[in-house]
Design a protein around this nucleic acid. Structure first.
Length: 284
DNA sequence: CGGCAAACCTGCGAGC
DNA sequence: TGCTCGCAGGTTTGCC
């Protein structure tokens, strides 16, 4: 489910409830998600104050007051849902696939629900965070100042794989997934089949611009709700209505003057096992 | 090392 | 109605 904009939306929603407050009770309702929970996971969280919620790529990072950090990844179907103290839902019974429940100081509660269990959580020393197995090889943050044309071009240099696959690689740039790669390549006018190494100079500049723009707009829209994504408040994101190509096979390309009959419309192909959507007319 | 398919797991919609 | 198939927003693993 979640790419950078969805994770950022979740982070913002969790900030309201978690930041500066203590975790009064943590319940872990099964031994594992994608990986086993670390030893004494709930015990080590209970009583801790949440200093700050951060994000790195698609990872949520919750800094605690004892120099440890909770790392959470939502996988494909992971969701956090907030239950406010004054809402009757707080007492609602646990639902199918609720795996972790955080009762927070002040009366609110947050539940992590993940049907497919591709998500995971880990608890590590904050000092060693960037060296964590899952974070160590991660590429630049696309919305940070140091992500620019030359930086992206350097990481694409020598790569024979299609640009689509390269952008899905979190060591090239952090946080992009199947939706936003298709959307960014459309905005940049680049074919998903183009060899990554050929994206240099002006093409890299344009792609960086496209990536930053699409992510920023999607965050402002609360992310994209296709199936699973909800903001922690329960609200839907609405950026899915702004997709130019994703999920729009056979529809008219929004940038083409010609009708669908002439251009063939938006195409869907499979690249390394995953759907890619693009306009063959506008993307080269 | 680079690149790709398969694997992990559940749910849902389409088609028969 | 009910079954099977294919597909889904991610990442790792293992195999060339």
């Amino acid at each position: 489910m979640p790419e950078l904009p969805e994770v950022e939306t979740v982070r913002l929603g969790l900030c309201d409830v978690f930041q500066g407050r203590r975790l009064l009770r943590v319940r872990v309702l099964r031994p594992d998600l994608r990986f086993p929970f670390p030893d004494r996971f709930a015990d080590r969280l209970t009583g801790r104050r949440v200093e700050r919620l951060n994000r790195r790529g698609k990872f949520l990072l919750m800094d605690l007051d004892n120099a440890t950090t909770l790392i959470a990844h939502l996988g494909m179907s992971g969701r956090f849902r907030i239950y406010k103290s004054d809402a009757p839902e707080l007492e609602r019974p646990l639902e199918r696939h609720d795996h972790v429940v955080f009762d927070v100081e002040g009366g609110a509660s947050a539940r992590f629900n993940d049907p497919r269990r591709f998500g995971f959580m880990d608890l590590v020393d904050t000092a060693g965070l960037s060296g964590h197995k899952m974070l160590a090889t991660m590429g630049p943050e696309p919305l940070a100042n140091d992500f620019n044309g030359p930086a992206l071009a350097a990481r694409l240099k020598g790569r024979k794989t299609p640009i689509k696959a390269a952008l899905l690689d979190q060591s090239v740039v952090a946080g992009l997934g199947n939706i936003y790669v298709s959307e960014a390549l459309f905005r940049a006018g680049l074919s998903p089949k183009r060899t990554a190494a050929t994206v240099q100079g002006g093409r890299a500049e344009k792609l960086v611009r496209a990536i930053r723009d699409v992510l920023t707009e999607a965050i402002a829209a609360g992310g994209s709700s296709l199936r699973d994504h909800r903001q922690p408040s329960g609200e839907l994101g609405y950026f899915q209505h702004s997709f130019a190509v994703y999920g729009r096979e056979d529809e008219a390309c929004p940038g083409c003057v010609c009708d669908v009959g002439k251009t063939g419309g938006i195409r869907r192909i499979t690249q390394s096992g995953r759907s890619t959507f693009y306009c063959a007319q506008k993307q080269r």
